[in-house]
Structures are given as C-alpha cells and as structure tokens.
Amino acid sequence: MTVAPNNTTVGEVAEGAERPIIIRTLNLKKSYQMGKVVTHALRGITVEILRGEFLSVMGPSGSGKSTFFNMVGGLDSPTSGRVFIDEVDVAQLNAIELAFLRCRKIGYIFQTYNLVQYMTALENVTVPMAFAGVAGDDARQRGMDLLDLVGLKERWFHKPIEMSGGQQQRVAIARSMANNPQILLCDEPTGNLDLKTGAEIHAILKRLNVQRGVTVICATHDHRLIDMSDRIMWIRDGGIQRLARRDEVTVQAGAIGGEENE
C-alpha cells in the first residue's frame, strides 16, 4: 500500500520512529447533500495517530471535529478517502466485523455520558462485555475492577439518575474500558462538567493512557487538556489547521486563545 503524498503540513512526530501507527487517515473527505446545497464537512484530512498517544482535537463547533471522530471510530463512512485502523481498512469491514471493532477495540466516551438509564453502574459497565460474550461472575468481577479504577466501586448499584454528572462520566469511562480497547474516543468528555470535575476526568483519562497504554483521542475545548496531550490537532473548516507537539504549543500558548474564537 502506497501512502499518498502528505499535502497537509504535519509536524515532526515525537519518537515517531519507535511508535507504530494505530490510526491512519488518507485524504478523508465527507460531504452532506442537503437539498441542493452540498456541505463539505471534511475536505481531505490525512493524519497518522500513533499507538499510546494522547491526541487532543480542538476546533470550533461546526469545524468537522465530530465528523472526523465518527470516521475514525468506524461509526460513519467517508465520502472519499480511507481510514486504516491498525492497517485494517475500515471501509472493507462488514456490519458484523464493524460491531466487533466497536465492541472490543474502540471505547467511546460521549459528552452526554449515554448511560442506559434503567441499569445500575455495574450493569452499564458489563453491557459491552455481554456483547463480547463475557457474562456471569467473570463480567461482574471485571466490572467491579473497572469501577474501582474510576473510584466508584462503592456506588456500583446506583442508577445514573442517582449520580452526579462527573460520576456518570466516570461510569461511562469504566464502560468504555470494558473490553480493554486499544483506542479511546472521547467526544468532549468534560463539555457538560464543571472545571474541577472536568479535571478529575482528565486525570483518569491520562492515567489510562499512561498505565494501560491506551491511545486516547479527545475532542475538547478545554485548554487545560493541552498540558496532558502528546500532540494537539486543530481542525477548521474541515481541514487540519495545525498539528503540533505539546512542547511546541506551550511556547505559543498566548497565540492559541486568539485562534480559537470561542
């Protein structure tokens, strides 16, 4: 497989030589037909994401951030271009293989937590295990371990409605880790949370990234996350505006605020 010439300016990848690539996109384009108007959500994104990397994706609303996420997470198919997850072309997978991929290889964290309302914390965590064919005491044990990991072991029997937003998001993180995925896709995980709780969530994500070597891709508006990231990607108008290592960003921190237009 030949890699198309990289048109977008990509910064030098730190330790790129040692770390293998886990997600690679090739000139990813997505457009929506809305009546007679064609909206271009993505205008050709080519990027390589490394294993074990903590990547923050930033950009204003409507920049194509979410579309990019859907493509990378195997939730939507691109109009043109390709997504390779560990050198597997996502477009080649059928529905059942896609379900397998979503179930075991990628964990999803949503801004709105999306816990199943009628299940307890533990039941929520074990749902993906059930889909993976793990059930019974085995699943319960692993579920409790994961809840312990996010610090909610004592509240395993609580329903989402009985928990705060931060606690719900922690349960959601435990759930996303249910089948030991390689990749965590977080879509503004702290968007609905206050600063302090947000920081706790960030800490948990970083810990998973460091301790378990999970690749974390995190869409966010929160600048504090930049501190934890290995690399930061800015998306604007469906294209990569900038891709920088963390150390490059700190220097230009003053300029970032001006760019964001929040």
């Binding site: 294993r51 050198e87 059942i96 293989e97 179930c103 290889k105 059930a130 064919g133 390689q182």
Partner: peptide, 22 residues
C-alpha cells in the same frame, strides 16, 4: 498487529431476554 478484526458474536437469546425484561 494489536487489532485483529473478527466476527462479532451474537448474544444468546437468554441474555437478550434478560436485557429485554429489564
């Protein structure tokens, strides 16, 4: 290769039933 893609298992009916009743 860390990610290998196989067919997703389908859930046994008994589990479907439990989830459904829930």
């Amino acid at each position: 290769k860390v990610i290998e893609v196989r067919d997703q298992v389908s859930l046994p009916l008994r589990r479907c039933f439990q989830l459904c009743v829930h």
